[in-house]
């Protein structure tokens, strides 16, 4: 993913740890292909959009989040209704190549597809929620949004005040996440987490869940197409 100049300017004012993490994440996101064993999922072995039903798995989670200001709490539900939503967790300094970069890569491809396809524009949004509220401030989140999001293909970057507000959302979605400790028992900046991507319909129902090993943008787009046909 190319790093927008505005984000560079923003990052120059941040700590070297944040800079290094984001650069690593950006490079990984731009270079890592979709995992090899996922290539065969789409195409002939995957059913066409609209020929299958996506079940209502569970309601989308509730909770309070922040977007562009620490002073303006927003309901998470306002980001998971009225449009089809692709939702996942991330944190800007994530360096695990099997973690956030794979989500970034998949989200980028879906985002590009939305921007190019009038049938998807204004009907699908992308949402990232940070696992690291101490580092991923609303200021940083709004820079991400400004640099990447478009009106026809909105991509929101959310964070929370602290882990206390984050944990219930993780629990609701059965996403395990924990902070790694060093040998001295001090917390590090590494957050172990199971990457899950959630496809949520406009009525706030989770309709599909993808894990990192089997996250294929073509399948996600097919599932989005299935939900759009269902709406019709």
């Amino acid at each position: 993913m190319p790093l927008p100049s505005s984000v560079w300017r923003f990052l120059r004012r941040r700590s070297s740890r944040v800079q290094a993490g984001y650069v690593a994440l950006s490079l990984l996101a731009s270079t890592i292909p979709v995992a090899g064993n996922e290539q065969s999922v789409a195409g002939p072995v995957h059913p066409k959009a609209g020929t299958y039903k996506l079940q209502k798995i569970q309601p989308a989670p509730s909770g309070w989040v922040l977007e562009d200001s620490v002073w303006i709490p927003r309901r998470l539900s306002s980001y998971t209704k009225d449009k089809i939503t692709l939702f996942s967790f991330f944190y800007a300094t994530c360096r695990d190549p099997e973690g956030c970069p794979k989500s970034w890569d998949a989200f980028n491809k879906v985002h590009e597809a939305i921007k190019k396809d009038p049938r998807l524009q204004n009907k699908v949004r992308l949402v990232f929620l940070s696992l690291d509220p101490k580092v991923d401030t609303p200021e940083m989140m709004s820079f991400f949004k400004t640099s990447i999001s478009t009106p026809q293909a909105p991509w929101s970057f959310l964070t929370t005040w602290n882990d206390t507000y984050l944990a219930p959302i993780l629990n609701d979605l059965y996403v395990p996440a924990s902070r790694e400790f060093d040998d001295a028992g001090k917390p590090t900046d590494v957050i172990n987490h199971l990457v899950k991507v959630f496809l949520i319909d406009k009525d706030s129902w989770v309709r599909e869940i993808y894990t990192t090993s089997f996250l294929n943008p073509d399948v996600v787009l097919s599932d989005i197409g299935t939900l759009l046909l269902e709406e019709e």
Binding site: N171, S178, T211
Partner: peptide, 19 residues
């Protein structure tokens, strides 16, 4: 059932889940 976030899945401690 949902009381706490899982401590068991130390996914990022190594490569992600394989097959």
């Amino acid at each position: 059932l949902k009381s706490t976030v899982c401590m068991l899945a130390m996914v990022a401690a190594g490569p992600a889940v394989t097959l």
